[in-house]
Structure formats: structure tokens, C-alpha cells
Nucleic acid binder design. Structure first.
Lengths: 126, 126
DNA sequence: CAGGATCCGTCAAGATACTG
DNA sequence: CAGTATCTTGACGGATCCTG
């Protein structure tokens, strides 16, 4: 379990270099809104409107483009119910579930330590 | 261990909302270069030049500003040896170590699945 | 060697309005 | 309700030059 970054790279030479696919994935998945959308979906299937309200501060444009990338990446599934008014559901794919599983510990830690981290600056300013 | 995003938020109302400290931390830590710099430092103390070479594609400006934020956040320690030519070392603080511990599983997973994820688009294009 | 300062282009991102 | 289209802005990020 004590994997190091060096070990990760040893197994796959060239990983995390500039032109590596991992960079693309990181940009999608660790983007400002990508993380939050994925996290929100970890609570289960959600409709467009729910996501819009759930991910505080996101604009419709950003929600749309973020979802489109994640769907194209195969991390999120889109299901459109033919009805009036329209009803569209988003959920994590198996791949997305694997991802979020590894992301939640990180988010949990951030939630626990955010105050201390931003607090450092207040100390530095003193 | 099966923490859900909902659970994380239940314990701390208002977490991950627009004006929450977690958002700031997320922006620093999940930023394009932030992740990579932190990951690189997980291999141990590194000098400026080593980081510059190790984090493929980063510019001096971005390395500088990324390091400055991470140091201000208390995640990275900066040690300047008084010598000519200058010698400066960067390493993770205990807080930074906690963070990277939770980040490595994620990076490892991304390294394993990146090809498949970016591959989805090729399929979609077909 | 380690970096700060500056200039500038590009694109991400917000606001708004409109549509199936 | 679930988006797309368009416009505008400002921050990110690259290149370059300069300093301790």
C-alpha cells in the first residue's frame, strides 16, 4: 500500500510526462468543477437540475461542458427519458465509481483540514 | 471506510459550498501543477532544479507560484542553504505528507486507466 | 543556481439570452 | 426541464529579461 510516486512511474516509463494521456485525465478529473460533479454523483443518480443546485456556484455552461467531457471519458453515464418536460439523469459508470472511491478519502481529508490550511496565511500575515 | 460524499457534508454543513475554505484548498491542491509538484515531492526532498526537470513541461513561473502557494498553505517546506551558488530544498510538511498519502492511490489509478479513458473518444468517433 | 518582475496571448469561465 | 449559443472578461500560463 505504501506506493510511492517513483514506483508508479517506474512501472510505466513516460507516465505523467507532458504528452501523456494521464495529463489529459488529470485535467478533466482534477479540474475545478470536475471533482465536484463527480463527488456529487457519488451520492447516486442525479438530474441536471439537482446537479446544478448541488454543485454550489457552477454555471449552466460549466455544468454542461463538464458533464460532456466526463461522459466522453466514460466516467459518467447520461440517460435521457423521452418525456415532456424532458427528464435527464446522470450517474457514474463503473469506471467512474472506481475513480470516486479513490477520491473520497482525499475530499474527506480536505474537508477536515481546510480551515487549518487556509489559516496558515493568517498566521503568516501576523 | 465506505464514506459517501453526502456523509462528508452531513458532518459539516456548508462544506464544499462556493465560499467554503475547501474550495480554496481544492483549487491549490487539485490544480494542474499542484498535483504534480506535490506528487514529485512525495519522493523526498528536491531542489528547485530537480523539480523543474521532474515536473515535465512546467515553466519557471508556474513552478515558482505553485511552490509559493503550497508553502503558504503549509503543505510544503522551503529550506534555503546559505551558499554560493544558492541551494534551496523543498519537501513536504507533515500535513503535506498526509495529503499525498491520500493522493497516490488516485494517481496510481489514473496511470492505470488513462489509456482506456482517452480511448473512449476514439470509439465514440468511430 | 534560484527565483522575482514584466509583458502579453489565449482560453477558461461567468453572465445572459434563447431553444427543443 | 435541459440544455445550447453568444459575448465579454480576467486569470492562467508561456516567454523573456533581470537580480541576489
Amino acid at each position: 500500500m505504501a506506493v510511492s510516486f517513483a514506483e508508479i512511474r517506474e512501472d510505466r516509463p513516460g507516465t505523467f510526462t507532458h504528452s501523456c494521456p494521464t495529463r489529459v485525465v488529470l485535467d478533466h478529473v482534477m479540474s475545478r468543477w470536475g471533482v465536484l460533479v463527480i463527488a456529487a454523483l457519488s451520492d447516486g443518480t442525479q438530474r441536471w437540475g439537482e446537479l446544478r443546485r448541488g454543485v454550489d456556484g457552477i454555471s449552466e455552461k460549466m455544468l454542461g461542458s463538464t458533464l460532456r467531457t466526463l461522459v466522453a471519458d466514460g466516467l459518467v453515464a447520461r440517460r435521457s427519458l423521452p418525456a415532456v418536460p424532458p427528464h435527464v439523469e446522470y450517474s457514474l459508470t463503473p469506471l467512474g465509481l472506481e475513480l470516486v472511491e479513490r477520491m473520497l478519502p482525499l475530499l474527506s481529508w480536505v474537508a477536515d483540514n481546510a480551515d487549518e490550511i487556509v489559516g496558515q496565511k493568517a498566521i503568516a500575515r501576523t
